[in-house]
Write a protein that binds this DNA or RNA. Sequence first.
RNA 1: AGAGAGGUGUCCGAGUGGUUUAAGGAGCACGCUUGGAAAGCGUGUAUACGGCAACGUAUCGGGGGUUCGAAUCCCUUCCUCUCUGCCA
Length: 423
Amino acid sequence: MLQVSFLRQNRDLAKKKLAIKHFAQPDLVDTVIDLDDERKQLQASFDETQAKVNSASKEIGALMAKGDKEKAEATKTAVGEWKKQLEPLKEKMAQVEIDLQNALVQFPNLPHDLVPLGKSPEENVLVREGGVRPKLPAGAEAHWDLIKKYNLVDFETGAKITGSGFPLYIGKGAKFQRALVQYFLDFNTAAGYTEYLPPFMVNAASAFATGQLPDKEGQMYHATEDDFYLIPTAEVPVTNIFRDVVLKEADLPLQMTAYSPCFRREAGSFGKEVRGLNRVHQFEKVEIIQIVHPDKSDEVLNDMVAHVEKLLVSLGLPYRILKLCGGDMGFASAITYDFEVYSAAQERWLEVSSVSNFQAYQTYRMKCRFKDAAGKIQFAHSLNGSSLALPRIFAAIVENYQTESGIALPKALQSYFGAENLI
RNA sequence: AGAGAGGUGUCCGAGUGGUUUAAGGAGCACGCUUGGAAAGCGUGUAUACGGCAACGUAUCGGGGGUUCGAAUCCCUUCCUCUCUGCCA
């Protein structure tokens, strides 16, 4: 959520930056400031009257103690009059506050200065490419054929148990998932991240804080009986650890990592793009999250990008890093780098990680603050990234490491899997 | 799921309708004292909104109500603990 005070002081800049994100209603900036003016005015007159009521009430207490009933009664009448004035003010103020809130939540985060212009994924900027594309054996297959051939994942039975997009991992496929999770978590904790295992369902307040609600309600599974949401990413529960918290400056940076299954309803895509493990409703992911001093978030974003890159390099997969353009970025993000690995058999790039700096967009929404050296309260910055999303890594390894007789494994994973080859 | 007890400041904890402007204690910070430390003494120690400021307003888990006045009374909801039940 954007801060009104910021919009007030940077009206034109805000509009300019919203345009980079292709935000359709720049005039909403003016609406918000007008509503805030109205709120201030209402509060001033409300406070003034309420102050009179409070001091008169105290007086009544003193008069009663003295036994001056007559004067006490007279004061009561006066207070009654003021309270009548208060009623409509209170109602109006509540309405203005709701209107203001409803307007504010519509703003996406403003893009960082480094964000390139552009509308669609084609306009994302290639930062760098790494790794080597493997020479596949003749008759190389895509992962959806390989997992069938070697009985690693059974989509049909998953669909029978639940529905389409809920894969059932079997035997070595299941063990391989476990090995990946374990490896990613160890890799992250070795870099200083603290491991968490969070709840996989969250309440509405948490979903609001990280920006899933109110707009993206349809993308989450909702357990209506208890009003809980299945998490679309561990970012939601883990970032919410620090909702309504005032930290000490010395606590920063906070570095967290968490494994969780992720649940996404994501309606809308068809065909080859969603085949096999490319897009599913339930998948596993290991996430990294940081809460940092606002002066440090640019630097930390680079650290996180370097961290994920190192992890990909250790898996020996061909990858590229993209800086997302304004039109392709997420709602809450100020700047995002996407990681893609090359699927040799599908001959296309698969997104496996997305690392973003949210600056104060989430922390303002969830009131995550810290007290600086001067004793002033400031909003922290939050960042997160996947490290890594499993299904597409699974797919990429299966495809890129296929041999004539089976599937090999990156060195880093062999001890975790307990064998030199997957098959 | 049933019955009961609770939720107060950074922490512990008092407070059952009106000088509570939330007692008292601990912790922390600063100062005094000291050769240095401890002890002692003093001062300070929540957040949000409005205001140049003085200050005002709100907040005792959340929401609503009664009252001139609510931490305190009523309703509702969430959470924690104990016992019982069920359960991996």
